[in-house]
Amino acid sequence: MPHDHSDHDHPHALLPPEPALRVKALETILTEKGLIDPAALDEIIDTYQNKIGPQNGARVVAKMWSDPAFRAAMLSDPMPLLEEMGFYGRQGEHMVIVENTPEVHNVVVCTLCSCYPWPLLGIPPGWYKSDAYRSRVVREPRKVLAEFGLDLPEGKSVRVWDSTAEIRYLVVPERPEGTEGMSEEELVALVTRDSMIGTGLAQEPGA
């Protein structure tokens, strides 16, 4: 292979990949027509890159673990409480909270595309959007969960919830043993993103 190829000096600006140029073309056309505000695009990206993420969902879960009245209200009618906490809006308008128990483990998917509770968990991870996860978790949930390192005891049943453009789910993982004395703030740190999708468990304290 020739090794004296000096393309890496980039005499011109680095050419973005083809789809990136198509996106730029759409932005240019729509901006010229006054159909979009480029500043609004930057703000949307900043919001999901820096402001909204699984820490929101973790606060909800920790509060449910700590406050029985809040937990009961969340399970029956979560929307007023989520609005109050500010975890409301785009793709989180109709949340259903599903709680793991010693008998039942819940896991969430979107078989159609990638519907996901943005205000509580942010943008879904790559695997959530992959065909592999979307098609298989419904068919063979135990096997898929095992691949995530989650081996469920045989007696435990698995319930798979298929999200839609209207209804999004949040899994409340079981509160780990040995956390009885922990404050709500300390509990937040144990609630992982995957535990709220159902492909993981909450972390053990000190893990």
Partner: peptide, 22 residues
């Protein structure tokens, strides 16, 4: 993990959300 793997993923996402909101 990064929220978006590539800048254009973020751009096309934001463009779509914005057009929906409009």
């Amino acid at each position: 993990d990064p929220v978006f793997e590539a800048p254009w993923h973020a751009q096309v996402f934001a463009l779509t959300v914005h057009l929906h909101e409009r």
